[in-house]
Design a protein around this nucleic acid. Structure first.
Length: 210
DNA sequence: AGTCGGCCACTAAAACTACG
DNA sequence: CGTAGTTTTAGTGGCCGACT
């Protein structure tokens, strides 16, 4: 349900990079977002049908290509102009994503966003995490009063994870803002490599959602 | 020739989730 | 709590190339 928009975004984002068939799409999805999110056949194909019906993607049936190992005729999906618009709209949606997966998915396609929009999304995410942190602190106080050591430990752990996430987001914001003045052509390419370390840090410890 | 494994498309049924 | 819609699981089946 809430996932539908996520699948749409992921599918359109990948098709934006390259036209491909369903099987390949799922492999790419797994490769790109595997650690965070798995899409099953049963949701991928209905999504592709729905997107094709709505004109966001175009299905081209290819009869057996010369390439090896391809029995069936392939249905290759290609993003349309309408699909590009839909993708941008989904990506630019600035509502706060309490769900870590949704935020991660957007981050995976951040390169398609304007720098200002990136900063906006990152700042909203940070604000959300700071609220969460405040909640943890309040809980911490409560459990301390009640002398509940296990709950206390759990809250401490949650707090550490959120604090780490905030630090990570802040790093991204700093980088993003640093690149803003020189916001032309080469800036985003340079940023892609500068973020490598932070990206891997994020992968190693994703927040446990909400 | 027969078998096996990979590629590819697709689906039924079960499990899950949101909503009234 | 019941219902409707969504997602996952666990397949089926066709085709091809490689191997025995």
């Amino acid at each position: 349900m809430k996932q539908q928009g996520m699948i749409d975004l992921a599918v359109l984002g990948l098709l934006k990079e390259q036209s491909m068939h369903g099987y390949q799409l799922r492999r790419q999805l797994t490769a790109k977002l595997g650690p965070f999110w798995q899409v099953s056949w049963g949701s991928l194909y209905p999504t592709l049908r729905r997107l094709a019906r709505s004109g966001a993607v175009e299905k081209v049936t290819q009869s057996r290509p010369a390439a090896r190992g391809s029995g069936h005729s392939r249905n290759v999906f290609k993003i349309t102009g309408q699909g590009e618009k839909m993708f941008s709209a989904l990506l630019e949606e600035t509502a706060v994503q309490p769900d870590q997966e949704q935020f991660t998915l957007k981050l995976a396609f951040f390169k398609y966003l304007q720098p200002e929009k990136r900063v906006l999304l990152l700042e909203r995410r940070r604000a959300y995490l700071q609220e969460k942190l405040a909640q943890f602190k309040e809980n911490l106080r409560l459990y301390r009063e009640r002398n509940d050591s296990y709950s206390l430990s759990l809250q401490n752990h949650g707090m550490a994870v959120v604090e780490d996430d905030i630090e990570w987001i802040e790093g991204l914001i700093t980088d993003e803002k640093g690149a803003l003045p020189a916001a032309d052509g080469g800036a985003s390419a340079a940023r892609d490599t500068s973020l490598e370390g932070k990206a891997s840090k994020a992968q190693s410890r994703p927040t446990g959602g909400s």
